[in-house]
Design a protein around this nucleic acid. Sequence first.
DNA 1: CTCTGTTGTAATTTTATTTATTACAATGAT
DNA 2: ATCATTGTAATAAATAAAATTACAACAGAG
Lengths: 147, 147
Amino acid sequence: MQISSRFTVALHVLACIATFSGQKKVTSVFLAESVNTNAVIIRNILLQLKAAGLIRVDRGTGGAYLKQPADEISLLDVYKAIEPLENGKLFRIHENPSKDCPVGRNIYEVLDGRLSAIQEVMELKLRSMSLADILADLNDRIEEQKD
Amino acid sequence: MQISSRFTVALHVLACIATFSGQKKVTSVFLAESVNTNAVIIRNILLQLKAAGLIRVDRGTGGAYLKQPADEISLLDVYKAIEPLENGKLFRIHENPSKDCPVGRNIYEVLDGRLSAIQEVMELKLRSMSLADILADLNDRIEEQKD
DNA sequence: CTCTGTTGTAATTTTATTTATTACAATGAT
DNA sequence: ATCATTGTAATAAATAAAATTACAACAGAG
């Protein structure tokens, strides 16, 4: 089961905001065209990024802006802003295993710590990467393509 | 978006097979009761574990058995046996971003490597844990509960 | 103050996926 | 031959993602 595209859409959105800030007004319609999706999808993602304090969105006049320097926005910040994990747990454990079976009775406690450790390394890696890293790669590619 | 419970169900199933091997015949019906789900769900998971070479399932007579020592079955083996990831990619990247936008044109290439690196650390951690580790924890708890 | 472009939000639909269920042929030991 | 069991198909129900439509709220520009 893949992690939904909302996370990568959010990264795309943030990359656009950072890239075009100052040059043009970054609206949900503009973003929807760049991502190739519906503007309401974008607006909802913008709302989540705003709620997490990562961006500012100007009502009425329109436009989205970073509220933090790109090197202070980690991919984990974005991931947590976007992915509404139940209990914050990446892995789902089946519910109500049999209390009559010694395995069923104990499986949750045994798995929970290990699954959390797996999630932890993933989140550490997410934290080690920033929006600035993505922008740097992006700029390199864009510069190359100018020839 | 959480990873489906099929993975943890598979771990539960393997733990039962290892725990009860020799003591009782481990059938899909028995497993379904321990997990608290439908026997067909279990059978399909058994088929996947069998296809991955982790277990043997006896047709007709019934019963499932480990084909490898528990310390040679890593959680990654189980995860890969169970999770049918498209292209093997954990993260989904939205399709057909605008070729007219410099961000849209390059976002896939820029994100792909980083997302793969994140998946990589998660898989390394999964590989570092074995079914034997789970069985050890499980046995400790079961022994404690015998009092 | 009205017009205009935009955001916030609700409601609904479409599509995909997971989980559950029913049914039954195929299997293989007894 | 019987019987418990697996393999498999077909389908339904539940959940979730993604897309769409509609419109009130907003805020600057004229």
